[in-house]
Simulated scan of single mutants.
Amino acid sequence: MNEGSPVTGLEQLRALAFEKVRAKSPPRLALAPAHDLQVLKGVCLACREGLIDQVLIGPAEEIRKNQAALGLESCSCNIVDIPDAREAVLHAARMAVSGEVSILIPGNITDICNVPDTFRVLLGAESGFRRPGDFLSLVGVIEHESYEGLLLVSDVGLVPDPTVEQGIRIIKNAVQVARLLGKKTVRVAILAYEDKPTPTSPTTIAESIIAEFFAREDDPTVIVEGPMRLDGALEEEAIPKKPRGGVEPGRADILIANNIHVGNS
């Protein structure tokens, strides 16, 4: 695989990960709490394939029981027995801050509530994980047969109702991910129900302000269009091509949701 070439599928991304790991030692990953079956399975399979060195944090007896249920009891891993889910997340955060692990995956805190609560613990002041000035957002990576290449979606889990400033930072974070996937020119569509800002829709006004910000940045490798309908972002024939610059219909690399509910729908 050529260095810097765009990643167009999840299998190619997996192959690239193997290349990186072969060149160095596997990164150390912490999963907390680690008793959730679905997340545990993915992490154990990655460990078995040599992609990561894992630390599982949570109720040790339940973790081993779930590994056996998945047929992954032979998977080599370190288990840190911390039955309390909240304390497990805090322990993982401290390991990340100290450099003991380089990747942290939050599991499902079922006895507190769900994944959003996991992030509240992880990003709270007590964990020390979030440094002053940090802005964190989630970026989803989607592969679909109807779309050529990998499609990024943000924010899907951390910023409930972004302000204009937060919207700009969400886009910048997503562009960084696109760069890591080898994209040289990144096309960003800020989603709305229509393609023009209207006074009766404050969201579309905010999206146009964000798009204008990036236009003033004058970076030809980052093209931001907003507001833009979803069909126009993904389907070439959905809307007429615009005479001015912007994201051409059907050519978006990143979809930006105007709130967390849209991002998860």
Score class of each variant (00 low, 15 high):
34 A>K: 02
35 H>R: 03
35 H>W: 01
36 D>Y: 04
36 D>S: 09
36 D>V: 07
37 L>D: 13
38 Q>E: 15
38 Q>M: 12
39 V>K: 06
40 L>S: 08
40 L>D: 05
41 K>R: 15
41 K>T: 11
41 K>Q: 14
42 G>Y: 05
42 G>W: 04
42 G>M: 07
43 V>L: 11
43 V>N: 02
43 V>C: 07
44 C>F: 07
45 L>Q: 14
45 L>K: 13
45 L>I: 13
45 L>M: 13
46 A>C: 14
47 C>I: 02
47 C>G: 14
48 R>E: 14
48 R>N: 13
48 R>V: 05
49 E>Y: 13
50 G>C: 09
50 G>W: 08
50 G>L: 08
50 G>H: 11
51 L>P: 12
52 I>V: 15
52 I>N: 05
53 D>Y: 02
53 D>Q: 15
53 D>L: 11
54 Q>D: 13
56 L>D: 06
57 I>S: 09
57 I>V: 15
58 G>T: 00
58 G>I: 01
58 G>K: 03
58 G>V: 00
58 G>M: 01
59 P>C: 06
59 P>Y: 05
60 A>W: 03
60 A>C: 06
60 A>L: 00
61 E>F: 09
61 E>W: 07
61 E>H: 12
62 E>A: 10
62 E>V: 08
62 E>C: 07
62 E>G: 04
64 R>A: 08
64 R>Y: 04
65 K>I: 01
65 K>S: 09
66 N>D: 08
67 Q>I: 00
67 Q>Y: 02
67 Q>K: 10
68 A>T: 10
68 A>G: 11
69 A>V: 05
71 G>T: 04
71 G>I: 03
71 G>Q: 06
72 L>M: 12
72 L>Y: 12
72 L>A: 08
73 E>H: 12
73 E>A: 13
74 S>H: 15
74 S>W: 13
75 C>P: 07
75 C>V: 13
76 S>P: 05
77 C>V: 10
77 C>Y: 02
78 N>F: 11
79 I>N: 00
80 V>M: 10
81 D>C: 07
81 D>W: 04
81 D>G: 03
82 I>Q: 00
83 P>W: 02
83 P>R: 01
84 D>W: 06
84 D>E: 15
84 D>S: 12
85 A>R: 10
87 E>P: 01
87 E>M: 10
87 E>G: 05
88 A>W: 06
88 A>E: 04
89 V>F: 03
89 V>H: 01
89 V>P: 01
89 V>D: 00
91 H>I: 07
91 H>C: 14
92 A>N: 05
92 A>S: 10
92 A>V: 10
94 R>F: 01
94 R>T: 07
95 M>W: 08
95 M>N: 08
96 A>I: 09
97 V>S: 06
97 V>Y: 08
98 S>W: 08
98 S>R: 15
98 S>A: 15
99 G>L: 12
99 G>D: 09
100 E>C: 12
100 E>Q: 15
